[in-house]
Amino acid sequence: MEKFTKAFPSKPLPSKTASPWALAGVVGSGNLEVLLERGGRPATAMECHVETSIPGYKAAWLAALADFAHHYPAGGTKVTINDQGAPPVLVTLRLRQAYDHLIKGDK
C-alpha cells in the first residue's frame, strides 16, 4: 500500500452543488472508488488523499490529479481515493463521474 496527500490549485467549485458528496466506482481488481466532498481546504485547491495497492506510480497519480484540478473548477473539494490497481484513465473517468454527480445529482 502507498498513501499520499496533496492539494492542487483549482478554480473554486460552484457555490451550489446538487449534493454535499458523491461517490463513483468500486474498489475491485483494476478499479477504484473516488469520494468527492465539499469542504476541502483551501477554496482554491483540490485536496487529495490517495491510498493505492500498487506502489511506485506516484508521478502518474499526481499528474492525473493535477490535470483534473486544472480542467475542472474543483477548488474547495476533498477527493479521497481507494485504489486497487486502476489504470490512470479510470482515475480521470471516475473523477469526472463523481464531479458530474456532485454538481448535477442523480442522472
Binding site: 483494476g30 500498487i54 506510480y57 490497481g85 489504470p87 490512470p88 484513465v89
Partner: peptide
C-alpha cells in the same frame, strides 16, 4: 491502444 496494458 490503451496507454497501459494489464498490470500497469
Amino acid at each position: 491502444v490503451e496507454t497501459f496494458q494489464a498490470g500497469r
